[in-house]
Amino acid sequence: MSENQRRPITARRVILLLVVLAVLLVPIPTFHTPHSRDVVIDASQFEYSPPRLNINRGDTVNVTLNASDVVHGFFLDGYEIDSRVEPGISQKFTFTADRSGKFRYRCSVACGPLHPFMIGELVVGPNEPVWRASALAVVAAAAVLLGARKRRMA
């Protein structure tokens, strides 16, 4: 393969690498000042209410956890918070949402048949992981399409 043939491919790869790095590393600005938030979460078979919480990065979250039927648990992915709540006895805990993204909270105490799927969602905005991953998906699909070479696909 001659230098003339090789050069455009290399340039394309460098551009692709720069785009990928930009997608991964360019900071996403936030316009929210951190707040203190009081949140009440009710656990019952097999759901949390509210099922989805939206907060901002840096917020301090004061959680009051209630159980309305049987004993339930509350495990927050990513933050490794684990709590157990009995009916009539609220549990309180506080954490600072210092990581952005979606984190599932799930029951950590077996509470019935659908226990493994008793799940809620905490979204700490701006949700950088989903935006970056989505942008990468667009870049990847476009790069494969535009960079297609017949001999490679044969």
Binding site: A133, L136, A140, A141, V144, L145, A148, K150, M153, A154
Partner: peptide, 17 residues
């Protein structure tokens, strides 16, 4: 998922070519 997408788009190109 991103690996799957890349693999799938390449497969569609293979069919197309």
């Amino acid at each position: 998922l991103l690996c799957g997408l890349i693999f799938s788009v390449r497969t569609s190109l293979r069919v197309g070519f």
